[in-house]
Nucleic acid binder design. Structure first.
Lengths: 153, 153
DNA sequence: TTGACTAAGTTCACTTTCAAGACTTACTAG
DNA sequence: CTAGTAAGTCTTGAAAGTGAACTTAGTCAA
């Protein structure tokens, strides 16, 4: 399999990675969630080649994860904002952050905490079942083919 | 920033990506969660260069995400199994899958469904707050510096 | 008018990583 | 001995990232 054919796989993870799996993209999204909006600020935060950042931002805009929003008119200037589709990546992103917290924060502890404004507390993400509300244990999950599965030849 | 300095960032996402952010790694983990275990089977499923697969598996083993378990002795042969640490990536992985389902499954629907054995139903992942149990809306989360944050210069 | 500045890219030469495939190693069985 | 199995290792060329400079399209002040 080639990386550039991921979008054609009958696999949702592959299709997701076709959009957000390139080097640096998840860190671009991290910044977007932290309210970084402008090209120069993404570039300053990440310190990556401008060409790479341009490409990453373009794909995210093309796929509707980010949108370009004019923040001034003369001259016209744009910033990049998360769309609803982009916001939908939050659970995945915060799960990755919290996994890093759990295993790599060391003695100092997590560099960043997430306060749930609804209850006022710093939280850990817990993945629960949409149907019964229980926390999900991966050993209690059985994958099975769905309607979009590839037909057997 | 160079990709090979991610592990030194005071950022949990960067630290996570230093381990699982390389091209193909998340698909290796997908397969591990789907009970693929042997080198040849990973290779057949992914169709990637054996050298790349070797490197990815090695880093995952070195970092304790996968472990090598002998499945026979003569000759000794190993398979790769998820550790507890590796299982901890399930929420992130399934969130990415479900994001792909939501946006790229098209008319056919998701290729793979996840049955929660505890309640017997196919589920969507819902991220909830460890403290109050409510579903998390990213707009209701405020990030703030934690104990491991980088000191200001 | 010119020059300086700002923001967002685009281009280039070089380095690193992936892709494709062949080859190697260490066995076992016939 | 040969053939087969499993898990790598090695090689060459293509693709992607790195680091930095340059370009474009404005605006504003002197």
């Amino acid at each position: 399999m080639r990386w550039d054919t991921l979008d054609r796989e009958a696999c949702s993870l592959s299709r997701t990675l076709a959009v957000i799996g390139d080097r640096w993209t998840l860190l671009v999204l991290r910044d977007a969630f932290l309210r970084v909006r402008r090209f120069e600020d993404f570039q300053a935060s990440l310190g990556i080649a401008r060409r790479v950042l341009t490409e990453r931002l373009k794909l995210l805009v093309d796929e509707g994860v980010l949108k370009k929003v004019a923040y001034q008119e003369r001259p016209v200037r744009y910033e990049y904002r998360l769309t609803e589709k982009g916001l939908g990546l939050y659970p995945a992103l915060v799960a990755l952050v919290h996994w890093g917290d759990a295993h790599y924060a060391g003695k100092k502890g997590p560099p960043l905490l997430h306060r749930h404004l609804t209850c006022g507390r710093d939280f850990r993400s817990v993945m629960t079942c949409s149907e019964c509300g229980e926390a999900i244990d991966p050993r209690e999950v059985k994958p099975h083919a769905g309607p979009g599965a590839k037909k057997r030849a």
